Amino acid sequence: MPSLPWKMKRPLPGFHAVATISAAVALALPLTGCTTLHTTAPSAARADAEDAALRAGFGAVDCRKAKCIALTFDAGPSEHSARLLDILKEKKVPATFFLLGKRHIEKYPELVRRMAAEGHEVASHTWDHRILTRISPKEIREELRRPDEAIERLTGQKPTLMRPPQGRTDDTVHRIAREEGLAEVLWSVTAKDYQTDDSALITRRVLQQSSRDGIILLHDLYPGTVPAVPGIIDALKERGYVFVTVPQLLAPGKAEPGTVYRP
């Protein structure tokens, strides 16, 4: 098993030791300090799109009509990502990958290329999973720029989306993300797969929370997560859901830099 950043190991003092609290805080308003987090729902992004974009078309899935949901994975690539990509290819399901740079992008460049080549959205989860609200503006910018540059070198495309570690964000992060051309993407469904390797439990948690326009948060670096994915996909398809990437969920709207998206 590859060595993971200390923040990702169990027990993880910088990441998982506060995971239960931070997961709740990340979805609460306000998040940090006196900042009030204003988020944009996918349905609002679609409604705000120009008529010209509607006429031009935006792919096979129209989430204004279809029951869409987005499957997203944080903190990869990892030793489990190749198997995950095999599953997604077999199931014909696109996903959005929020990748870490240090010890991940730099360790598995071929998987980053494969993600992009197979039609998945490749985005950033920062370089070293530092909590952005606790570091200087200069450090925030470095955490955002380094993975973007690495991804662009590997895929030819600069990311337009990022997910702040633990969902922690504030006005300073918004400003720098906007300047770097990045929208922030939070989530509505979490399996807390950092707490368990029980794939059946991970599946149940996702299914209990899923709803239309949902954004599912999973981590493909934990051993219990990837085995849960086929069951999650099959069960949600049976319920009439269509899987899309985050940009497809927003279409015909587009992700606006500096905006925070959450269902």
Rank of each mutant, 00 (worst) to 15 (best):
M1R: 06
P2G: 09
P2M: 09
S3D: 06
S3K: 09
L4R: 13
W6I: 11
M8V: 00
R10F: 13
P13Y: 14
P13F: 13
P13M: 13
G14L: 12
G14P: 00
H16D: 14
H16Y: 14
V18P: 03
I21A: 14
A24F: 09
A28R: 14
L29W: 05
G33H: 10
G33K: 08
T35A: 13
T36W: 15
H38I: 13
H38D: 11
H38Q: 10
A44R: 13
A45Q: 05
D51S: 10
A52T: 08
G57W: 03
F58G: 10
G59T: 11
V61G: 01
D62R: 08
D62P: 12
R83V: 11
L84W: 02
L84A: 02
L85H: 03
D86P: 00
K91H: 12
K91E: 15
V93G: 05
A95R: 07
G101R: 05
G101E: 06
K102L: 12
R103C: 07
R103G: 06
I105R: 03
L111I: 11
L111M: 13
V112H: 01
R114V: 01
A116F: 05
E118W: 11
G119L: 11
H120F: 04
V122K: 12
L132E: 02
T133V: 11
T133A: 09
S136P: 12
K138L: 13
I140P: 10
I140E: 08
E142K: 15
E142C: 03
R145W: 08
R146F: 00
P147G: 02
D148A: 14
E149Q: 15
E149A: 15
A150W: 04
I151H: 07
E152G: 04
R153E: 15
R153A: 15
G156E: 06
P159R: 03
R163L: 06
R163N: 01
P165T: 08
P165D: 05
Q166W: 07
R168V: 02
D170V: 03
T172Y: 00
T172N: 08
V173L: 02
V173I: 09
E179W: 07
E179Y: 10
E180W: 02
E184A: 13
V185N: 10
S188T: 09
T190Y: 00
T190K: 03
A191E: 04
Y194H: 01
T196C: 04
L201V: 10
L201R: 15
I202R: 08
I202G: 02
T203D: 01
T203W: 00
R205T: 00
V206R: 02
S210V: 09
S211A: 14
S211G: 14
R212P: 01
D213C: 06
I216T: 05
D220W: 02
D220K: 00
P223A: 08
V226Q: 04
P227D: 04
P227I: 02
V229N: 05
V229M: 03
G231H: 11
I232G: 03
I233E: 01
L236G: 04
L236R: 01
K237N: 01
Y241D: 10
V246R: 06
G253R: 13
K254T: 12
P257C: 07
P257K: 12
G258C: 07
V260W: 02
Y261M: 06
R262S: 11
